[in-house]
Design a protein around this nucleic acid. Sequence first.
DNA 1: CGGACAGTTGAGGCCTATCAATGGTGGTGG
DNA 2: CCACCACCATTGATAGGCCTCAACTGTCCG
Lengths: 233, 233
Amino acid sequence: MTRSPVTLKVLESLEPQAITLGADRDEVIVARGNRAMYCFLVVMGCVRAVKLMNDGRRQICEFLLPGDLFGWDALDEYDFTAEAVTPLTLRRYIHGDLYALADRDRTFACWLRELMVEKLQAGREHTVLLGRQAAAERVSSFLREMAHRMNSDTRTLIELPMGRADIADYLGLTIETVCRRLTQLRRDGTISIDRANVVIRNPSALGVAGCVIQHRSRVLLPFNFNAAAEGHG
Amino acid sequence: MTRSPVTLKVLESLEPQAITLGADRDEVIVARGNRAMYCFLVVMGCVRAVKLMNDGRRQICEFLLPGDLFGWDALDEYDFTAEAVTPLTLRRYIHGDLYALADRDRTFACWLRELMVEKLQAGREHTVLLGRQAAAERVSSFLREMAHRMNSDTRTLIELPMGRADIADYLGLTIETVCRRLTQLRRDGTISIDRANVVIRNPSALGVAGCVIQHRSRVLLPFNFNAAAEGHG
DNA sequence: CGGACAGTTGAGGCCTATCAATGGTGGTGG
DNA sequence: CCACCACCATTGATAGGCCTCAACTGTCCG
């Protein structure tokens, strides 16, 4: 899952204090309740933002993909746990530095505000999905969201980074229900699917009532980490 | 139900540009898709933040009570519709003024950031409720939330400003299911309820499974890509 | 080859939605 | 003052969708 090394430098002035990290699959990056000292940019791989109930029920609030920032939306402690869905490369920044930068750089403050607002709006779309959509609609919405975020071209292959259990916990369903809905979409000819590989064959059939979750405020990667990241795998 | 003095003080320098508005029950304050020119402080009454699907399904993302601000979390257009749950008194501010103030007043910028983060975190809690809690837990959570927000003293009378339909659309349930769960809580002796009036008789019985604080399994070791990163600095 | 793991499929039960009827309350006008 | 109506809340009966439990398949890796 490599992305074309795009050039933007929103976080450029934070780079001197930043370090690059690797993480294995299922590794915990930050845990709920930990003091929020850092925030992270996903360079390569996929992260899940998890909330756990004390009887073991799990809800994934968000998937973070390359270019996404997480951990900044904490006042004192993280309110969710972030885990590696896939092997990761992360760029780690000092949490306080982000806000210090916002204080002195008006452009950055504006960018940060936009990021927050977009997250709030994406959260509301997810709320509608969980509160008012049936299982089939949730799975369709999920596929559209991932197609949009990972590739932006329909009718091309998407390689889902997460397993069925993660999809289920993101959509408020069970693994079995996710499987059955995916199978139905395959039988309808809407998609082709083999494990993690999905091809959307009939995009209009995935269109459901409601709006797409939009993630516009992506951090464009400041550097090309791809070469270094391959050494970690 | 009086205006929160904290919020008032923070917005003090915006008061000259502000006006006070009234609204009747069910009146639309701002509509999804409208240009976001204003934001509002609830002075008296209750507002619902609504998202509608094009087949009529409705999800309430949030209830706004006196002291709450809404409409600021928009970039260009409002992404939800705000309607009066009860007759309202609102204080209306210019949307752009809020961010102009944030630009020149560091304290206000900090306050606004905290507000955003709290909204994000509240949204995630709501996500867990919708994704992973059963109907009885949702209703219990709702009562605890309202008790906390409206009164903060348990064992005292709460007068719910919204009807069963609004509660249902907030909790991702139907009116009938909300009724049945409330009736069950009354029969269990957990609450007394008569229409909008609720008394919590057994607060501990309303306690539901919360979220776990998770501890990090192992320390993340820095990946030594620093040299590569600094090379581009 | 076997064991672990992820994904798929099937059978059955439970919970919530749906449809329907009743009860209660507030407002209006006779 | 009361009859009437509209609206909201409650309760009941039934159906359906998703969850649970279980078995099976396929893949990866030792």
